[in-house]
Amino acid sequence: MAKQMPKRNLEKVGLSVTGACVALVTLVVVALIFMVAQRGISTFIKDGVNIAEFFFGTEWNLAVTNEATGLPYTGALPLIVTSFAVTILSTVIALPIAIGAAIYTVEIQPKFGQKVFQPLVELLTGIPSVVFGLIGFHVIVGAMRAIFNVDLGLGILPGSIVLACMILPTITTLSIDALRAVPQSYREGSLALGYTRWQTIWHVVLKSATPSLMTAVILGMTRAFGETLAVRMVIGGVEVMPTGVLESASTITTTLTTSMAVYATGSVQNDVLWSLGLILMGMSLIFIMIIHIIGAKGAKQRG
């Protein structure tokens, strides 16, 4: 700034420059949502795929045309079921570990937790998902073969274990924050009444931190539901209804990875894949909404 600009104009410059940044991001997000939705819905409107058939059909094969409809087999239920299965299973595995570790970090060894454990867990956040996938492919899948005596060892279970490792740092870090936010006076009150440390943690600390812990879990599930490559590398990639946790299967995301580049934009197959993208987007919007509802409820309870 060589010349002195009047302050009022300078402030307008600041407002417009920064406002433009926010507007740009908002615009891109809106464009993204609109584009995914438009593509995803056109499957049902333009291409005439039956919505019920898409959501409840159990046959998925984009390469083969169904004689009866003249369209590929587009029953996405196996993918949806598998996606939910790995999400829920990985959360079930990660949750007790994450909460336990958080309790240890906040209540039992705060110094050690803050100095050693937390940085170590945060390191896990930084490990790329392909590296998780690679280790899963070599170590966990191998372990599955050895333990359960199966041929391939690919499937929902190894996928869930890999995912559990990936969402563990998310849930742990957020749970640590949640437990730290519980006022010290709650603990002192409970201890003064003669409760043991464990009783205090269980009945007082965890209870009052429940909304924040739920938020932590939902954020972990969001990550699990959308995770792609790590799952792709250990789940097998066969688009059939899962019959067991050690059978090759395929989630919504893994099907997208393998098929997206194959079919030309505008084809029925490509549109159907966008419908899958729409499901992913819809789920993450739902997860955000749940977090907001929990937050609003928590705010109301605190008054």
Partner: peptide
């Protein structure tokens, strides 16, 4: 509110969806 919700939405979108959007928008 809309702006901060938009940023939050972006943060929770699976990266594969972002990749698909980038593919359609920029590559195609």
């Amino acid at each position: 509110k809309i702006a901060s919700t938009a940023i939050e939405t972006l943060s929770s979108l699976p990266s594969i969806v972002v990749g698909m959007f980038g593919f359609l928008m920029f590559s195609v």
